[in-house]
Amino acid sequence: MALIKRKEKIKEPEIKITWKEIKRQKVLLLWSAIIVVYGFIFYYLPLGGWLMAFQNYKPKDGLLHSQFVGLEKFVQLFSDVTFLKVIRNTLAMGVINLAVTFIMAIVFAILLNEVKSAGGKKTVQTISYLPHFLSWIIVTGILHDALSSTGIINELLMNFGILDQPLNFFAHPKFFWPIVAFANVWKETGWNAIIYLSAITAIDPSLYEAANIDGAGRWARIKYVTLPGIKPTIIILLLMNVGNVLNAGFEIQYLLGNGLVQSVSQTIDIYVLKWGISQNDFSIGTAAGIFKSLVSIVLIVIANQIAKRNGEERLF
């Protein structure tokens, strides 16, 4: 503790902005300028399109000449029962996905770290992160086959006598969220674990030695050394992912969904596609998109404040 306190006391020498200083840093400044321009063009400029949400936008009239309607599109959006369901679905799937993939990745990384044989560890790690590189269309194809009435899951369940009739998993709304969560875990666990594994390797080995000498068993070492060691990583990733909760997915729900489960399968992204693109109502699509962005910003700020209050790592 003493060490950390002393660190805090050291103040960075103030650098005055002088021409000389600017000249000295010109390469750095040039590089950052490129990033700023890039960010402006690709992140801020498109925000001009948000205007559409307050207009009755017609491509023929363009952004400048479409009729201005104020918040009418938002009123329309929130009086649509479907949209309210869509928000619920997006939030539910987002939270479920975040929780399971997040916990699974940490557990998996710790388990993998405990494997002593280097070869075995490498093999498991490689195999487990490969699904990350498959596109969703392939993953959903596999799921569809595996869960079909003649697929491996139904065959197994029938052989074990749990079912006597093949079960059509995709016809029941109650199975949809678990299937999506499972698919996410299967696809992303190995990939997400990589960052935790690298965080674990950064832990000072002498801490483990000390713990050993103090008589800590494997469980105690995980609890008192590994987990506290990767806590900053966990918090930062959690913060970033909270902002992503509303990005619960598009492809997987779009590809696995069908009429029977549409009341639980549609996410905001699908809604935007359906009304914004297919129905040519760009205004309502944009309004839904704005809503999503605003909620994401609010979520990330709240999560950040909580982290700040608890004296943890934070994004800003």
Binding site: T82, G259, L260, Q262, W275, Q279, N280, D281
Partner: peptide, 19 residues
């Protein structure tokens, strides 16, 4: 398109029938 009342109804009918 959903610009007209009938078009909106048509889209909603489709959605309901799908389910």
């Amino acid at each position: 398109t959903t610009d007209t009342e009938g078009g909106l109804a048509w889209t909603k009918m489709g959605e309901v029938k799908h389910e």
